[in-house]
C-alpha cells in the first residue's frame, strides 16, 4: 500500500509521459487478448480465482446491458396508481406534498396509549452545569464576584426578551448561539421543513436548562406548524406541535428535529 498519493503528486508536478495516451489505448486494446490468454492457460488455484472474478464481471456486464436495452425501449410508462383510495377528481394529480397525512397518523397513534409518551430519542447524555456554564468573573475582587454564568450551548430566546441590567443578569445567553428556526422532519412522510420555534418544552438534563431554553440533543421543542396545514378535529388549524432535537446543535450550527407524531 502506498503511504501517500505519491504518483498523483508526481503527475501533478511533472505531468504524464508524452506517450501516455497511446500506451493506455494500446493496453485497453490488448485487454481482450490478455483475458483470453489467462482463461486458456491459467491452471490450478489461479484459474479458479480468475474464473470466479470473470464470472462476477460478466454478471455485472449483463446487468448493465439489460439496463441499457430497457432505457431504449419507447412506450408508455406504467401508470402508478395511488395506494390510498381517492375520488376521481384527485386521480392523476401529482400529490401535493403536503404534510396532511399527519393528522390521521397522529390520530391513529394517539389511540395506542403506550405510544403517547414515547419519543424518538429516549435516552440522552446528561449535561453537567460545569459543561454548560462558563464562569464570568466580574469586578476587582475577582475571586469573590464569580456569580455570573455564560451559557455555552445554543439557546432559544423568546422574541420579546430583553436582557436584564448587567448587575442582575446571572445567565448570559450569547447572541451568536441563539436559534429561532429548526429543520423539522416528519418521520413518516420524510418531509423536512424549516419551522419557527415557539418554545422549549423540556430539556431532559435539568429543569433549569428548560427555563433557560437550552437546545441540546433530545430537547423537546414546540414548533409552529401552521404552514403544514394540520387541522384539529374541531376544524381549527393546529399551530403548535412538539418536536425532538436529533443533532448536537453546538457541533453542527443548525437545529435538526423530528416531529413527535
Amino acid at each position: 500500500m502506498p503511504q501517500n498519493e505519491y504518483i498523483e503528486r508526481h503527475t501533478k508536478l511533472y505531468g504524464k509521459r508524452l506517450d501516455h495516451e497511446e500506451r493506455t489505448r494500446k493496453k485497453a486494446a490488448r485487454e481482450g487478448h490478455k483475458q483470453s490468454e489467462n482463461a486458456q492457460n491459467l491452471r490450478g488455484l489461479r484459474a479458479k480465482l480468475y474464473a470466479k472474478e470473470r464470472h462476477a464481471q460478466k454478471i455485472q456486464m449483463r446487468k448493465a446491458i439489460k439496463q441499457h436495452e430497457e432505457r431504449n425501449v419507447k412506450g408508455a410508462a406504467d401508470e402508478k396508481e395511488p395506494t390510498n383510495p381517492v375520488p376521481a377528481y384527485l386521480l392523476d394529480r401529482a400529490n401535493p406534498t403536503s404534510a396532511k397525512a399527519l393528522s390521521s397518523q397522529i390520530k391513529n397513534k394517539r389511540a395506542e396509549k403506550a405510544a403517547r409518551f414515547s419519543v424518538p430519542i429516549p435516552k440522552v447524555k446528561g449535561i453537567s452545569e460545569e459543561e454548560l456554564f462558563k464562569v464570568v468573573k466580574t469586578g476587582k475582587k475577582v475571586a469573590k464576584k464569580a456569580w455570573k454564568r455564560v451559557v455555552t450551548k445554543p439557546t432559544f430566546v423568546g422574541p420579546d426578551f430583553t436582557r436584564r441590567p448587567v448587575k442582575y443578569e446571572r445567565f448570559i445567553r450569547p447572541m451568536g448561539l441563539r436559534y429561532k428556526k429548526a429543520n423539522v422532519t416528519h418521520p413518516t412522510l420524510n418531509v423536512t421543513v424549516q419551522l419557527p420555534i415557539l418554545g422549549v418544552k423540556k430539556n431532559p438534563s435539568n429543569p433549569l436548562y428548560t427555563q433557560l431554553g437550552v437546545l441540546t440533543k433530545g430537547t423537546i421543542i414546540e414548533v409552529n406548524v401552521s404552514d403544514l396545514g394540520i387541522v384539529t378535529a374541531s376544524g381549527k388549524i393546529a399551530w403548535g406541535r412538539y418536536a425532538q432535537i436529533t443533532n448536537n446543535p453546538e457541533n453542527d450550527g443548525c437545529l435538526n428535529a423530528v416531529l413527535l407524531v
Partner: peptide
Amino acid sequence: TDLPGHEDEVYT
C-alpha cells in the same frame, strides 16, 4: 353553520 365532525378530508 360550521359543521366540524369529520376526522379527515371530506371527499363528497
